[in-house]
Structures are given as structure tokens and as C-alpha cells.
Design a protein around this nucleic acid. Structure first.
Lengths: 173, 173
DNA sequence: CCTGAAACGGACTGATGAGTCCGCTTACGT
DNA sequence: ACGTAAGCGGACTCATCAGTCCGTTTCAGG
């Protein structure tokens, strides 16, 4: 990609903005047509930049996932592994639930974009908390994420903090 | 429905059997065509008995839900509300996870078939346990089901008992 | 048997959504 | 200003699936 023509760049931005908005509002199941309409372009234009719907979704959630990775990295700096884990969980949940639609996209994309990196960092945060005795150790670090995500996605509108609290309580050693 | 012709009755049974099997294997998203094929009938035949896909699904999960209602009724007899609730939760989970595909159907159908009845009975079991101080009371009885269901559905193949355990621990007062 | 109503099943419709194609338009270097 | 390659967008294909319709087959009672 040497250099985009001015109109191309403008449309690319419009598409990304619209996609972010629409995915945030309605989750991963919206059609490309809807996004194209919101962006004020033809859907051919969307597909030219993002060959598949998933490609577009990855682009949209990239920042989200990067931010979560940053939280994890930060948690690894703390010298109280237990506290670090619970703080991390709260921060990630806060970010995820600030735009539930986008979070569903993150879940939908699973390991693809920077998911692997996020998974790896989380695993470290969790394993460290387990080693410190702050977290029950009869489950794999890989089980913690799904449990929390499941609770968050099951929660009705304003209730997710309560649901998170229940699961985190259940996770304590 | 005065009396079904012999071939009609035979096909009806075939359809119900096939639908149970296929829904159990693949959850609520299978197509009617697939079920009809498994039953060895045309899909027109399926639609004649069950005007919509949901009608078929209701018919298939009816026993499932009835069984869960029975568990709830039984739990209400017990004179230890706390124990009754946790036993109920385990029994329901056991039944649900014995055929995860069907359980997804139950979730999909939500309140429709005897779901309302099940919801009402569960509510009583939960409220009783809360009154007895065995369950944290900062959540509504209606929140307990979703939390447990979410954990079960998030669990990988063999791990659901562990996930259930985490959530139930978090629910204790 | 034989006949009519019940049941059958597959062709058909209509909706939806991802991804392709190509004739027209427009930016931009010369 | 102008030629051209990059970009555009919508019509089109292809696949899937719920639900309808109707010509044909089969059951069952007389």
C-alpha cells in the first residue's frame, strides 16, 4: 500500500468510524450493507479495503484489544499479584462493558488479531495470582477468562458489576 | 386432532426422534431440512405437524423442562433450603449438560413452553435459600439462573462441574 | 376393491447476507 | 488540460434457510 488517494483515505476513515459505531451498537451480526450505508459508501468500497467481514472487525477491535494488553502488562508490574489480578479483571470488564457490542466482536474474533497476545499476558497475570495463593488453583488460567466473559455477557443492562463480583468471589482461594 | 392416520403417526414419531437427536447433536441452529433428512421425510411433512421451527423445538424439549420443574418441586419439599438449592442446581446442571445441544434449545426457547413455570418454581427455591441465609441476597432470584447457565455454556467439554462450582461458591452468602 | 380424504414431499418463494465484477467517475502527475 | 490508473458503488452471483403450495400417493372405511 504505497499511498492512498485522498478520496480513498477519506472513505477508509468513514468506514472504520461507521463500523465502530455500528458494531458497538449491534454486535458482530450486523451486515456489511448496514455499515456501508452508515458510512455513506457502497458496500463494494468496504470489501475493497477489508476482503472479509472478519478483517473489518479485526481492524475495529484492534485498539480495544491493545488496551486490554496494556492493562495486563501493567498488572504484571504490581508487586501484589492478587490485587493485580482483581484490578486487571475490573479494568478489563469496565472496558468491555463500556461497549458491549464491541466486546461481542472481540469474543467472536477469539484468537485472531492480537487475541493470542492478550491470552498469553492474561495467563501470566492469573498464574501469578494463583502462585501467590490469592486465586483458587484447581482451575487452569485459561478457564478464568471464559468464566468472567460468560458472566458479563449474561448480565442484563446495569447488573454486570454484580455478576462480575459473584464470579470473582467464586474464584478467590 | 381426532386420530392420526397410521403413516402420519409413524412419521410424526420419526420426526420427533430425529429432531431430538439432531438438536442434541448440534443445538438450535440446525435447519429443518437437516432434521427432515435425518427423519427420512420431506420437510413439508415436518412443517405440517409443527408450523414453525420453534414449535418443533418446544415439542422436543418439553420433557427436559418438565423434568427440571420436578426437581424444583422436590427441592421445595426439603426442610433445608440451602441444601435444597445447591442440590437443585446440581441436578439441573447435570441434566442440562447431559445433552448440551438440547440445553441450548431450552435457552433459545426461553420463557415459551413451560419455561415460565420452571422460572417461577426456581424463583421460589432461590428466594427460600436467600431467606434462610444460605445464599447472598444482594441479587435477585432471577439473576441466579442466567449466571449458572452462562457458566455452564462457557465450559469446555469436561469442565462444567468446575465452572459450576466456582459460580455456586460465589453465590454463597 | 374402490374411492375420497388425509398425508406426503419436493419444487417454489421470499428474505438475508457475504463476496465479486465491471462500467463509470475522479484524483492527481505531467 | 488531460490521460490514466486508482477508486467507486451498485447490480449480480451464490448460498442458506424458513415457510408455502400443490400434484401425487397412500391409508382406511364401506
Amino acid at each position: 500500500m504505497v499511498e492512498l488517494r485522498a478520496d480513498a483515505r477519506r472513505n477508509l476513515e468513514r468506514v472504520l468510524d461507521a463500523a465502530t459505531e455500528v458494531f458497538a451498537a449491534s454486535g458482530p451480526d450486523v451486515s456489511i450493507d448496514e455499515i456501508a450505508r452508515a458510512a455513506g459508501v457502497g458496500h463494494g468500497t468496504v470489501f475493497r479495503r477489508f476482503p472479509t467481514k472478519d478483517d473489518l472487525m479485526y481492524a475495529v477491535i484492534e485498539r480495544h484489544v491493545a488496551q486490554m494488553c496494556a492493562f495486563a502488562a501493567e498488572a504484571l508490574e504490581s508487586d501484589d499479584p492478587g490485587e493485580a489480578f482483581f484490578g486487571f479483571a475490573h479494568r478489563v470488564a469496565e472496558l468491555a462493558m463500556s461497549t458491549p457490542g464491541l466486546h461481542k466482536c472481540v469474543v467472536h474474533c477469539g484468537e485472531k488479531p492480537r487475541g493470542a497476545e492478550l491470552g498469553e499476558l492474561s495467563r501470566k497475570v492469573i498464574a501469578r495470582a494463583q502462585r501467590a495463593g490469592a486465586l483458587r488453583s484447581d482451575l487452569e488460567p485459561a478457564d478464568v477468562g471464559p468464566l468472567i466473559r460468560a458472566a458479563l455477557m449474561a448480565a442484563p443492562a446495569g447488573q454486570w458489576r454484580l455478576y462480575l463480583d459473584v464470579v470473582l468471589d467464586g474464584l478467590r482461594a
